[in-house]
Amino acid sequence: MNKRPFLNSFFLISFILFDSESIWSQEIANDFNNNIGKMYVVVGVIVLIFLGLVYFLVRMDRRLKKLEKDIPIIKQ
């Protein structure tokens, strides 16, 4: 079975998003992303923004955890 689902899907997604060679060639490649007018670039941008917000949340979570560990009242 797939032991690293996250890693593999990450490679798959980055392959789909960053495989630009066919799109940049002079002839219009008849691939999926180009047929729908590069719409998946917009989806990718939105996903990246969401990941940025998640990063903020994770950091906030870690900091609060540290603070809670130090405050005796919350610890019990």
Partner: peptide, 10 residues
């Protein structure tokens, strides 16, 4: 910067 890089790729 990162969203700009993705956009620039295409």
């Amino acid at each position: 910067l990162v969203t700009g890089m993705l956009w620039a790729t295409y």
